[in-house]
């Protein structure tokens, strides 16, 4: 690969990554709901607050479980349920998110951070599980 093409690709990748991270360009949501669209943007705007940037979780008086390399994420329905309805201290997030957004962030998390689940969930799955 010649140098120009390499440079073009890296510029392109940089551009893509800036576009996808809502939190990087003062992209706060304006209304009461989350306005991030992609799974990646949603993860870094919401989940990262507790589960951390690389989904490594955290430990204090209690802990936030790591989502990275987490076999519990095998069941897409379980992840949809957690995001939608919460569990223990984890707040339910469905009040702030559409079915599509929940599906996006669930798919993103299940296919990143060392998770390689290939089946995807969609808005209909969320509709069934979230029970709005």
């Amino acid at each position: 690969m010649n140098k120009t093409i390499k440079l073009l690709i890296s510029v392109f990748l940089l551009f893509v990554s800036t576009c996808l991270y809502a939190t990087d360009d003062a992209g706060f949501s304006e209304g009461a709901n989350f306005e991030e669209v992609t799974g990646e943007a949603l993860y870094h705007a919401i989940c990262q607050g507790c589960h951390m940037t690389n989904a490594e979780g955290a430990q204090g008086a209690g802990k936030y479980p790591a989502l990275a390399k987490n076999p519990k994420l095998a069941a897409g329905a379980y992840v949809i349920y957690m995001v939608s309805n919460g569990m223990g201290g984890m707040p339910p997030l469905k009040q702030y998110l559409s079915d599509e957004q929940i599906a996006e962030v669930v798919n993103y998390t299940r296919s990143h951070f060392g998770n390689h689940f290939t089946d995807v969930v969609d808005a209909d799955d969320v509709k069934t599980i979230a029970q709005r």
């Binding site: 009461a32 870094h44 919401i46």
Partner: peptide, 10 residues
């Protein structure tokens, strides 16, 4: 609310 999650994530 929503913005608090976004702020926390930073």
């Amino acid at each position: 609310g929503a913005n608090a999650f976004e702020f926390t994530s930073l």
